[in-house]
Amino acid sequence: MKNLRMIMNAFVLIVCSYLFWETFQFNTNFNAQGLGPAFFPRATLLCIAFLNIVEIVSAFKSKQPQEQHSIMSKQLLLFITAILCFVGLFNSLPFLLVAIVTLFLMSLILKLKLVSSLVFSVTISLAVYLIFTQGFNIIL
């Protein structure tokens, strides 16, 4: 956890630096009065960067034993991959097909029974499809 915290803070710090540089590219032609559009983002980015440095230092100095909370499991990774496929294929293939297949896969990843998984994925996908297309006139 300590290492993960440091990695996350370091990553945020790098992103902050890039975004801070980006604030100098803002078009300020219309800014006749006041502090300008870059002031607030710069101020918040500086605060984020400062707090990240504090967090990195405190994580580095921390003498507490490493906690054993996991951030990822094989099951969760598969589950997230299934969602990723769902989102990736959302606009490319018919909604009902993508939804039924991915929901069925998710149910299997979560170790639900085969038949009940199939019935559940078909029913819920169909229900959501009907609610949104017939009820709200949204093309899925």
């Binding site: 945020v12 975004l19 980006e22 604030t23 803002f26 078009n27 300020t28 219309f30 800014n31 006041g34 559009p37 870059a38 607030f40 983002p41 918040t44 980015l45 605060c47 984020i48 707090l51 990240n52 504090v54 967090e55 405190s58």
Partner: peptide, 28 residues
Amino acid sequence: VKKGLLTGFIGLFLATIGLDPIVSTPRF
């Protein structure tokens, strides 16, 4: 409080994405 401040500032930063509220300059 440190962690709360950090996430609070991240929220404040995310709110700055898009057109600036005063002069409509595109940001990020």
